[in-house]
């Protein structure tokens, strides 16, 4: 684990959206969607970003692939095992040759595919605009990609409306893989799918990672999915990373009260595990007008005066486990894995 190569390093990433009002649309304030986050992703691993809606995880992922222009911060990305390049401030033209190394899988399998294009045009487009001019070559590659994601190559001339949600998600994955990227940013890739189809897509992602040596940045709100697929996880709350650790570590012994509450809130598909949940009080803070000090303090049952006054920094408490909480070292929080492991009823 120690000698792994860093593929992506994000430093102090910020994305503010102006709130515009009035006749001339002047900015009267900012929504601090992503408010200074740092993390790094190793080559070949799956790094998860979890959090609830509005925590900035999707915005962060879109800044990293540069679908959005970050307000501030650095995004270092290693191209072809070479030097790290900061892609945060590159122009459209400078970015163009780097795009092929970072691709994205979207949440909504319906809006992510142009309904007016055939599968060949959709999956073949990245090839076409990146210099594969020969139609025959493209057809071959698209057929290969369709087979790779478990679709029949003869679907080439069909339009997306012929496919179900799960199949469309496979098409989206095929498009993302077309240019042999090293990093795939997956923004909630299974949350819009039916339960029985979710497992198929998760399996496909795992299988592709193994076969192609992909690195995933996996954005999700479903902790069970994150637990299943991620090696390391960052938990976000109101635009900031509050905790980051190895998945096992995070689920076993969370150090941030928000992580603890989040883990405890996940309903488990096992009625024998009905336990006393931690019910958080109040609402998620408004990123346009966040509270003082630690953003989580109004809902935190462990909050002290210090939390109201001073913003905690993300600090390492154990190797590979960083927390942004003043009381991280004194609190003993409950994880989910210390609950008795149930006997699996069906094996």
């Amino acid at each position: 684990m120690e000698n792994e190569q860093v593929l992506l390093e994000v430093k102090g990433l910020r994305k503010f959206f102006p709130i515009r009002k009035g006749f001339w649309q002047r900015a009267v304030g900012h929504v601090r969607a992503v408010d200074g986050i740092d993390f790094h992703v190793y080559k070949g691993e799956t790094f998860g970003i979890v959090g609830e809606s509005g925590c900035g995880k999707t915005t962060a992922s879109r800044c990293i692939v540069r679908a959005l222009q970050p307000t501030a911060g650095e995004i270092h990305f290693r191209v072809n095992d070479g030097e790290m390049t900061d892609v945060a401030n590159l122009s459209r033209d400078e970015l163009q040759p780097l795009r092929r190394h970072m691709q994205m899988i979207f949440q909504d399998p319906f809006s992510s595919l142009n309904p007016r294009m055939t599968l060949f045009d959709i999956i073949g487009e990245p090839l076409l605009v990146n210099g594969v001019a020969d139609r025959r070559q493209r057809i071959e590659r698209v057929e290969e990609l369709l087979a790779l994601v478990g679709l029949r190559p003869e679907f080439l001339q069909r339009f997306p409306h012929a496919f179900s949600g799960g199949q469309r998600q496979r098409i989206g994955i095929a498009r993302a893989l077309a240019l042999n990227p090293s990093l795939i940013v997956a923004d909630e890739p299974v949350s819009a799918l039916d339960v029985s189809v979710q497992a198929q897509i998760l399996n496909l992602l795992l299988e592709l990672q193994e076969r192609l040596g992909l690195t995933y940045l996996f954005v999700a709100h479903d902790l069970s999915v994150v637990k299943h697929i991620c090696d390391r996880v960052a938990v976000m709350y109101v635009g900031r990373v509050v905790e980051t650790a190895q998945t096992q570590q995070l689920f076993e012994s969370p150090k941030h009260p928000y992580t603890e509450a989040l883990l405890s809130a996940v309903p488990q598909p096992d009625p024998t595990l009905r336990s006393q949940r931690i019910i958080l009080e109040g609402e998620v803070a408004d990123p346009a007008n966040p509270p003082s000090g630690c953003y989580f303090h109004p809902r935190c049952r462990y909050a002290v005066d210090l939390c109201r006054e001073q913003t905690p920094e993300l600090e390492e408490v154990e190797p590979g486990h960083a927390v942004s909480c003043h009381r991280a070292l004194e609190l003993d929080l409950a994880g989910t894995l210390d609950a008795p492991i149930p006997q699996t009823a069906h094996s």
């Binding site: 879109r62 163009q96 092929r100 979207f106 992510s112 142009n114 605009v129 498009r175 077309a178």
Partner: peptide, 17 residues
């Protein structure tokens, strides 16, 4: 805001395309 437009952007399509 449509995802397929973002996807085309990420694929490296030109503005014109």
């Amino acid at each position: 805001e449509e995802d397929f437009v973002t996807a085309a952007d990420l694929a490296g399509c030109s503005r014109k395309r």
